[in-house]
Amino acid sequence: MTTYLPNLTLPDSVFRSLPASILVPITLGTAVGFSTRPKEVPRKYLSLKQPPLRPPPQAFGPVWTILYGLMGYAAHRAYFLGTSPLSLPSTIAAARHGATLYTIQLGLNLAWMPLFFGFNRPILATIDILSLVGINGYLAWLWGTKVDSVSGWLQAPYLAWLSFATYLCIGTGYLNNWDLDVKEGKKRN
């Protein structure tokens, strides 16, 4: 088990504040979304060969906003309850370890869209999202068994969506021969 790494972890003040815990991932996710050419991404998304069950592009914003809010609340809850002065040392260690994992997964989450849509690197985006699934599976287990079961269960919708997004990422990469460099105005068959 890795440990609490303060240099790789959001500040305690973010985790201790419910509004900050919720707003930081929502704000960062929104900023990444808007910085990755928001008018071009839906066009590009629709121009790529896609696996079955792909949602419309306008579904992603609301879904991610809800998921970012839930994961922020879970992080706040796990950290706040887990680092309470009344907590056992092992619970405090698990909560701090979870804070580091949460911060790392948030960074990986924010990197996915630029990797996939900005840099047209579906293989790197796939590695990124597979890492996200693994880290968040472990984080859900860690929070759920060592800190607070509600915090662990709050990760379930995020894990479900990440699993679906992994299917979409791999399916789209595969169906487009791992080349997402679509020329403007050209739709793939």
Rank of each mutant, 00 (worst) to 15 (best):
P62R: 04
S90Q: 14
L159C: 09
R43K: 14
N177T: 12
S17G: 04
I92D: 14
D148K: 01
N120A: 06
V14R: 10
L124P: 03
L159V: 06
P52G: 06
I135S: 07
P157M: 10
G173E: 11
W143F: 14
T145Q: 12
A75H: 03
S21A: 12
D181N: 14
P85V: 00
T36P: 11
L175G: 10
A160Q: 11
W178M: 12
L106Y: 03
G61F: 04
R121H: 09
S17H: 07
M71Y: 05
S90T: 14
L175E: 11
P55E: 04
P11R: 09
Y4R: 11
I127L: 13
G29P: 10
G144S: 11
N177I: 05
W161H: 06
I104L: 13
L8A: 12
V182H: 07
P52I: 08
R16P: 08
T83D: 09
M113F: 11
K49M: 12
L132A: 07
K187R: 14
Y174G: 00
G118H: 10
L23C: 13
A74I: 00
K49L: 13
A93M: 05
V63N: 00
L110W: 11
G185L: 05
F117Q: 01
A125W: 03
F164M: 02
P55H: 00
S13L: 08
G185S: 03
A74R: 01
L10N: 05
Y73R: 00
R77W: 09
T126H: 00
P52H: 03
W143P: 04
L81H: 08
V63T: 15
L70A: 10
Y45E: 05
L168Q: 12
S17Y: 03
T126Y: 00
S131W: 01
I66H: 02
S90C: 01
N176T: 08
R37T: 15
Q58N: 13
A74E: 06
L18Y: 09
L180T: 01
A165T: 06
R96Y: 03
G152M: 07
Y174W: 12
S151W: 10
R54N: 15
L101K: 09
I170L: 10
N189T: 15
L106K: 05
T91P: 01
R37L: 12
R121G: 02
I66L: 13
I66A: 13
I66E: 03
G144I: 04
N189E: 14
G144P: 06
T30V: 11
S151D: 06
D148I: 01
R121K: 13
K187D: 15
T65W: 04
V182W: 00
A75R: 01
L110A: 08
T172D: 07
F119P: 03
V150I: 15
G173H: 08
P57F: 02
S21R: 02
Y79I: 10
S131T: 15
A160N: 11
F164I: 10
W143A: 02
L5K: 01
N189L: 11
